[in-house]
């Protein structure tokens, strides 16, 4: 029963990691670079919701979509300022630019909100209920459900709709996509903005469950990154699987190992994957164009 309870917890945590990982993967596939500012977008999502709901008094269900829009806008600005100008720069430069963006966003959040922690009123209820010996918290269950639903929706969008397919086509071969008449610029931006929305939703799901401060992006970003790498930086399914494996591993580490190593799990995962197949991770291979 203890294990089952831990698994449920790991699943709920893992589905959020998975959402963040999905953002990494989408951008990595389209832009060929890991966006280390992805965690900050989660923070933007959480803080936007906080401001809109707790400060400005918007009803939570109205505040959520607005917060997603705000985060998409921030995503667009990040794309415009730091991805677009560096499109033809080498992988390392672009990677470092994303780290710069993340430091920048984190410090802006710190300037606005200080280093204090915030708690956010629960959206789906935090009064636990018992099933047998299991204790279930509605918000956690909803988080898991929303995480899975979003992945399923995104999968559907990418695999079944014309626009979704064109985004995948762009990610796979930009030049061929242009030859199809696909607006590659718009497709890349669209992918970035969707990834930002996913990150923001992850942040908004975390906010009502956990305390957060300006640094939440760094914490959650690392977990999402590890989950994405674990999932192979492939499309949707891999990221979610990676997230859930990581979430469950973190919980089981406490049961079977020692809690001292819990927070090291994400790094151990990264370490192992980077040792086993480093080349694929740091930058997506660039095709050599024929003269």
């Amino acid at each position: 029963m203890q294990i089952l309870q831990q698994l449920i917890q790991g699943l709920s945590l893992g589905s959020i990691y998975g959402l963040v990982a999905l953002g990494y993967v989408l951008i990595y596939q389209a832009w060929g670079v890991l966006n280390f500012a992805q965690g900050e977008v989660c923070a933007i999502g959480a803080f936007s919701l906080l401001v809109l709901h707790a400060e400005l008094g918007m009803p939570v269900y109205a505040a959520m979509p607005v917060a997603v829009l705000v985060s998409m806008l921030v995503g667009y600005v990040i794309e415009f300022l730091s991805f677009r100008p560096l499109e033809n720069a080498n992988g390392t430069t672009r990677l470092i630019a994303t780290i710069g963006v993340s430091i920048c966003v984190r410090n802006i959040l710190r300037m606005i909100f200080g280093a204090d922690y915030f708690s956010f009123p629960t959206i789906f209820g935090d009064t636990p209920f018992q099933v047998g010996e299991l204790i279930l918290v509605p918000q956690n269950l909803w988080n898991t459900a929303i995480g899975f639903a979003l992945v399923a929706l995104l999968n559907l969008f990418l695999k079944k709709t014309r626009i979704g397919k064109s985004m995948r086509a762009t990610a796979q071969d930009k030049e061929a996509a242009r030859l199809m008449g696909i607006n590659v610029r718009a497709s890349l931006t669209g992918t970035f903005v969707i990834a930002s929305a996913l990150g923001a939703i992850a942040g908004m799901l975390i906010a009502p469950v956990y305390l957060f401060n300006f640094n939440i992006g760094a914490t959650i970003g690392t977990k999402g990154y590890a989950a994405a790498v674990l999932g192979g930086l492939d499309f949707a399914s891999g990221a979610m699987t990676g997230g859930i494996i990581l979430g469950i591993a973190e919980c089981l580490a406490v049961v079977f190992g020692s809690s001292e190593y819990q927070s090291a799990i994400a790094y151990i995962v990264l370490f192992l994957v980077l040792i086993l197949k480093p080349s694929e991770i740091m930058s997506k291979k660039k095709k050599v164009e024929k003269v």
């Binding site: 831990q6 917890q9 790991g10 945590l13 975390i206 469950v209 956990y210 305390l211 957060f212 640094n215 939440i216 760094a218 914490t219 959650i220 973190e250 919980c251 580490a253 406490v254 049961v255 809690s259 819990q262 927070s263």
Partner: peptide, 8 residues
């Protein structure tokens, strides 16, 4: 920095 301590 951990947000979730329920495993512990």
């Amino acid at each position: 920095n951990a947000t979730d301590l329920s495993a512990q």
